[in-house]
Design a binder for these strands. Structure first.
Lengths: 214, 214
DNA sequence: ATCTTTCCCACCTAGGTGTGAACC
DNA sequence: ATGGTTCACACCTAGGTGGGAAAG
C-alpha cells in the first residue's frame, strides 16, 4: 500500500476509554460510477475559485462504537513524482513533478459526531473544492495541474479536534478515486461521462434540450 | 515522496482557566431594518416545512477573549400569555395563549469556536426556520400562530457542548426583534416591507418586472 | 506553432419568496 | 359567514456545469 497510515491505529490500548470496541470499515457509496471513470482515466477540473469533484465522494461507514465520537477527514495527496501530459489519446509521464503545496485536511463539517450518526446514512464530501490558486483562503484543496492525486479518508475516534493528534485512527484509500488534475478536460470520453452523470451539466446533454456538443 | 504531516499540533487553550478576561457585547448588524419592521409590527410566516425569518438575525460580537472558545445559541420565547388577532388594521389581544411546545435551542453551526473568529465578522442565523408543525424533525423553531415571540441570543464560554451547562454565559435580548407568528401576513405594510427588502421576493416588486400586487 | 490557463456565458440544480385559490 | 391554514405556482437568489474564445 503506497499510502502510509499517518495515525495511530485502532486497537491500541486507550488510556481514556479502554472499554470501547470498534472495527471501522468504509466503502464507497457510488463505487460503480467511480470505477467507470477510473477505467478511462479520471480528470478533475481545478480553477482559481475552486471546482467540486465529480463523482461526489460518498462513504458508507460501519463498525463504529455507537456512543463514541468520531472525526472524519479527507485529504488529497500526490500519487507519484511525475508530471503528466495527454498525448495521442493517452496520459503519459512528461517529466518530474512540480513542487507541492503543503496539503490541507478537509474536516467533514459534521465532525465530531457519534458513531451512530456516522453510520446512519452515507457521508458526502460534495462541498470539497479543488483549486490551483496557491493563495486560496476558502479551504479548497490546492493541487498542481497535470499531476495525479489520491484522495484519502481518515477516521479518528476523538470527541474534540484538540485531541485528534493523540487518538486512535484509521486511513482508507480507494484507488478508483485517483484522478489527474486539469484546467480543461483532455479526454473527451471523460467530458462526456461528466455531462452524462453530473446533474449540473444537464444542459450539455443531447437529449436534454441543451445545445449539444458542437 | 514524503507525504505531508496530516496534523499540525494545535495550541491548546484552556477555557476553564479562571484567568480568562472577557466582557461580551452584542449588537445587531442590521438594527435599522429591524426597527423599521418593529415600528409597524413585525410578522413572521410559519409553515409546515419551515420558513426563514426576515430580516435575518445578524449579530456583531465584541469583548470576547480571543483564544477562548465560545458557543452561540438562539432561542425564541413567548413575549406574553396572550393570543392576538389583527382587527381594523391593528393587533389586539384576543384571549389567552395556547399551550407552548418546549422551546428548542438553535446552536449556531460554527459553535464552538474561538472568540477571535466570532468577533471577526458578523454572525448570521439566516438558516434558522420557523414552523407550526409540532412533529418537525428538521430543527426549526416550533411556534404558535397569532402569538408574540422574542428571539434571544445566548453566549457561553465553553469548549464543548457537554460542558455548556456549567459554563459562564450571558443572554442578549433585542426588543426590536419581537414578532407575531402568522400563517399568512395580516398587515399589508409588513408584506410590502418584506417585498421591498427580501431579495427572494424581488419578483413581487413593482419596478422589478414582477407581476405587481394585483 | 503548441500547449495550458483564464474568463464569460447559457444552462442547469437547489431552494427561498409572496400569491391566490382552495380548504377547514 | 368568518377567519385561519395549506398548497401549487411563477419568480426570484445562489451557485455548480462545460463550451469556446481569448490570453498567456
Amino acid at each position: 500500500m503506497p499510502y502510509p497510515a499517518p495515525f495511530r491505529p485502532f486497537g491500541v490500548p486507550e488510556t481514556n476509554d479502554p472499554d470501547v470496541q470498534d472495527d471501522p470499515k468504509i466503502e464507497l457509496e457510488n463505487d460503480d460510477l467511480w470505477k467507470t471513470f477510473h477505467k478511462i482515466g479520471t480528470e478533475m477540473v481545478i480553477t482559481k475559485t475552486g471546482r467540486r469533484i465529480f463523482p461526489a465522494y460518498k462513504a458508507k461507514i460501519s463498525g463504529l462504537d455507537k456512543k463514541s465520537k468520531y472525526i472524519l477527514l479527507l485529504d488529497i495527496v500526490p500519487c507519484d513524482d511525475c508530471r503528466y501530459k495527454f498525448h495521442n489519446g493517452k496520459w503519459m509521464v512528461a517529466g518530474k513533478a512540480d513542487p507541492e503545496m503543503p496539503k490541507r485536511m478537509y474536516i467533514h463539517p459534521d465532525s465530531p459526531c457519534t458513531g451512530e450518526q456516522w453510520m446512519q446514512k452515507p457521508v458526502s464530501f460534495h462541498k470539497l473544492k479543488l483549486t490551483n490558486n496557491i493563495s486560496d483562503k476558502s479551504g479548497a484543496a490546492i493541487l498542481n495541474s497535470m499531476h495525479k492525486y489520491q484522495p484519502r479518508i481518515h477516521l479518528v475516534r476523538a470527541s474534540d479536534l484538540l485531541r485528534m493528534a493523540y487518538s486512535p485512527n484509521k486511513t482508507f484509500v480507494f484507488e478508483e478515486t485517483q484522478f489527474i488534475a486539469v484546467t480543461a478536460y483532455q479526454n473527451e470520453k471523460i467530458t462526456q461521462l461528466k455531462i452524462d452523470h453530473n446533474p449540473f451539466a444537464k444542459g450539455f446533454r443531447e437529449n436534454g434540450g441543451g445545445r449539444g456538443k458542437k
